[in-house]
């Protein structure tokens, strides 16, 4: 019963902060609301018994990636954007139509496929799946090649970021 109410608390926070994030004209405020959104998502992962992913979400997303974003934002100091209502109406209509079509497709699939008919939650298995032990066992046995590839990708991204940020475009 308590877990149910936690889903609604975190879910509403996640949805509201996402909307606030795309509607603020000051990008720094957008970034701070995105951090709050990531924190709410970490809470949702905890309600799903995914302890390792919840901690990683806080450390990697809220800790590392968003600090990088905020750092670049404060370095570049971009001016405030136009408000949504002052935008070109063509862009506005196009954006909302595309976004609603995407949402309608997803909602249609979810409501007509009804995945909960075939899935019943087994609490013990769910808790077991979220532990570091079971994720680590999969990661270092069956998924060792993707894991090494991810490490190589991070190395390539580090070198690429250095090269791009160092050299001036001609």
């Amino acid at each position: 019963m308590n877990l149910d109410c936690l889903f609604f608390v975190f879910g509403i926070v996640a949805a509201v902060t996402a909307v606030i994030m795309i509607t603020r004209s000051n990008p720094v405020i957008s970034a701070l609301f995105l951090v709050l959104n990531f924190a709410a998502l970490a809470g949702l992962y905890l309600t799903l018994n995914a302890q390792f992913i919840a901690v990683t979400q806080i450390i990697v997303y809220a800790g590392a990636i968003m600090v990088l974003f905020l750092f670049v934002l404060m370095l570049l100091r971009p001016e405030n954007e136009k408000k949504f209502l002052e935008l070109n109406p063509k862009i506005k209509i196009f954006a909302m139509v595309v976004a609603f079509v995407v949402f309608a497709q997803l909602a249609y699939i979810i409501f007509f496929a009804r995945p909960s008919q075939n899935i019943s939650k087994d609490l013990a298995k769910s808790v077991e799946a979220g532990t570091i032990e079971s994720i680590g066992r999969e990661l270092f046995t069956n998924y060792i090649v993707p894991f090494e590839a991810a490490g190589f990708l991070l190395l390539a991204a580090t070198i690429g970021a250095l090269v791009l940020a160092k050299k001036k475009f001609d």
Binding site: G11, I22, L44, A95, A99, L106, I110, R114, K121
Partner: peptide, 22 residues
Amino acid sequence: IEYYLILSAFMFFVGVAGVLIR
């Protein structure tokens, strides 16, 4: 599971709108 999926679909919708509007 539908609750989580609908929340996820909504966040995806907000993300698509953000990419196109901002």
